[in-house]
């Protein structure tokens, strides 16, 4: 039953979604909306699992006095302190909002800004001319960059048109080919799960057992 019951729930849920999406009566009964609400409720319950896992790991760090355990302590204070503040003040509370905007949003932006530096190192690696493909990549990237930046148009008026052509035709064609393959792949994966052939999500190696 440990595997059969979740499998049955998976199959019924899959059929429920197809019925809700494709059949007029499913749309009339707003089955997909109901499904979304159930998912939100189940996610709210599962949030506790994440918090418990984090707490368990970091309590262990503190107990064993692992290197940097002070950061584990800080994490636990932030996690449970912020939760307590939210419970006391509510999510519209002044201090709760201030901590969010003054700390979390700023930290988020800081990590995001690292991307600018990483793009430079990745571009250097990608644009080294070693093969014909790398040369093509370098030339097309140079045209797109010049076409998108004002300096490109100042150098030659044709750069924006060339950049647009590269983005609209070869780039879009390649992206769509990848997407069509990905959609079909995801569809077949869903079908394998619905038919019970793929069971990795129920634990263990599922269909991908070692040879």
């Amino acid at each position: 039953m440990r595997k059969e019951l979740p499998l049955l729930v998976t199959i019924l849920t899959g059929l429920f979604v197809i019925f809700g999406h494709d059949f007029a009566i499913g749309e009339k009964w707003q089955l997909i909306n109901a499904m979304d609400k159930w998912q939100t409720i189940s996610q709210a319950f599962a949030l506790l699992i994440g918090a418990v896992n984090l707490t368990r790991i970091h309590v262990n760090h503190i107990r064993r006095r692992k290197a940097g355990y002070i950061f584990s302590l800080l994490l636990l204070v932030a996690l449970w302190g912020y939760t307590a503040l939210g419970v006391v003040e509510g999510y519209k509370g002044q201090n709760f909002r201030w901590l969010y905007n003054a700390l979390l949003v700023q930290l988020d932006s800081t990590i995001f800004s690292l991307l600018a530096f990483y793009i430079a190192t990745a571009a250097y690696r990608a644009f080294r001319i070693r093969t014909v493909e790398a040369t093509l990549l370098l030339v097309s990237a140079a045209i797109v960059m010049l076409g998108r930046a004002p300096i490109g148009e100042a150098i030659w008026k044709g750069f924006p048109d060339w950049a647009n052509w590269i983005m609209r035709f070869p780039n879009t064609a390649a992206m769509r080919a990848v997407l069509i393959g990905a959609y079909l792949g995801s569809f077949v994966t869903v079908l394998r799960i619905l038919l019970g052939i793929e069971r990795a999500h129920l634990g263990g190696v599922g269909g991908a057992g070692m040879k």
């Binding site: 792949g185 995801s186 994966t189 869903v190 990795a200 999500h201 269909g207 991908a208 057992g209």
Partner: peptide, 16 residues
């Protein structure tokens, strides 16, 4: 669906 693709690979990685 991408997460399920990961699930399908993870068991193999863990077993190795």
């Amino acid at each position: 669906p991408e997460t399920f693709a990961f699930f399908n690979t993870l068991g193999y990685i863990a077993q190795l």
